[in-house]
Amino acid sequence: MFGNAFAQDAPKHDWSLADMASQRGRIFLVTGGTSGIGYESAKALAAAGAQVVIAARSSERGQEAIASIRQETPNARVQFEALDLANLASIRALGERLNATLPRLDGLINNAGIMEPPERDTSADGFEMQFAVNYLGHFALTAELLPLLQKATSPRVVTLSSIAAARGALHFSDLQFEQDYDAGSAYAQSKLACLMFALELQRRSDAAGWGIQSIASHPGLSRTNLQANHGFVRRSLRVLFQPAAQGALPTLYAATAPEARGGAYYGPTGMMEARGPLGLAEVPQSAMDAEAAARLWKVSEELSGKRFPTRLAD
């Protein structure tokens, strides 16, 4: 049922923040960096000396996150930029601002997400909200920031998926779940799309010579605000989840470890990959469908109105 599309050496299971090299001189952008996995990632990167851009919707929460990070790392180089991933105009505006002000971007962490809103909602552009925020917004943002990434020496794009991707399917006949909305299925589709995007981005970078390492990660079951929409049973079971700081390790490894490889997928290695030490995550067979990934890429360019450079193979 499962396999790994790319042969990789597994990271050491006890990898921790103590193993993370200095990130001084590197610039990262973390979407959704005001809470959960994104906040823990931004905090760790700033503590390691990186310049960190937190991109999120709420300026108030952004300033709170920055103040909290600076309490632990007084000299942290961290800034907030407004970004609404459910609004393509907001994504374009951020791309314009950063392309005009940053010298380069060493790492893009596509982290922000929403999970299983009980009622179907749509983005400013008319897309199902989970598809828009979790996947399509990050697809468009990566395209917007590609020029900055290409200015870096060894740029990386880390895209967060989920163990839910294993039960996901791409509903090409109804990607926006207009006909029969199911919150769980829509979430799983969005996270499968994220994983397929990460793998396809690596394939296209190799083909076109973009020089980008595209890596996927997932946090297992971690205590974050994503559980806010869940019922009493799931909320009560949060005590069984691992802390967000532990859940952020696969992402931080993917973003910083010299031995991390493009096309890899990192996550916890405990039972069902819900928690536990860092390792290679299992790639669902559906995520390895290169034909479906190419189709999703084409549809995503059409929906977002944002196109990546043509592949050399074309």
Rank of each mutant, 00 (worst) to 15 (best):
A164P: 02
S205V: 11
F197Y: 10
L195D: 05
C194T: 10
I215P: 03
F177E: 03
R167P: 03
L192H: 05
R167F: 01
E178P: 00
H218D: 15
L192Y: 03
L221D: 00
R167E: 12
G168S: 10
A165Y: 09
Q213L: 12
I212M: 09
E178R: 10
G209Q: 00
C194I: 08
G211N: 00
D174E: 13
L201F: 13
I212P: 01
A207W: 01
Q189I: 05
A188G: 00
A193W: 01
R203F: 01
S173V: 13
I215E: 09
S222M: 10
W210T: 04
A198H: 10
Q189W: 04
D174W: 12
A166Q: 15
Q176D: 15
R223F: 03
H171Q: 15
L195W: 09
T224H: 09
A216G: 07
A186E: 09
K191A: 06
F197C: 05
Y181C: 12
S190G: 00
A165K: 14
Q202C: 06
L175N: 07
C194W: 04
A165W: 08
K191Y: 04
A208L: 08
A207H: 01
D206T: 08
W210Y: 11
S222V: 02
A183P: 01
L175Y: 05
H171Y: 15
A169K: 10
A169L: 03
N225Q: 11
S190V: 04
Y181Q: 01
A193G: 02
T224G: 00
Q213D: 11
A208H: 04
G220M: 04
A216Q: 12
L201C: 10
T224C: 04
R203P: 04
F197G: 02
W210F: 08
H218I: 15
A208K: 00
G211E: 00
I163H: 02
S190W: 09
F172L: 14
E178Q: 13
A183C: 00
E178L: 14
D174Y: 11
F177N: 00
H218R: 07
F177G: 07
A188Q: 11
L221K: 02
P219K: 10
S222A: 15
D174Q: 11
S214I: 09
L170G: 09
G211T: 01
T224E: 03
H218Y: 11
T224K: 10
S190K: 02
L175I: 12
A216C: 12
D174K: 05
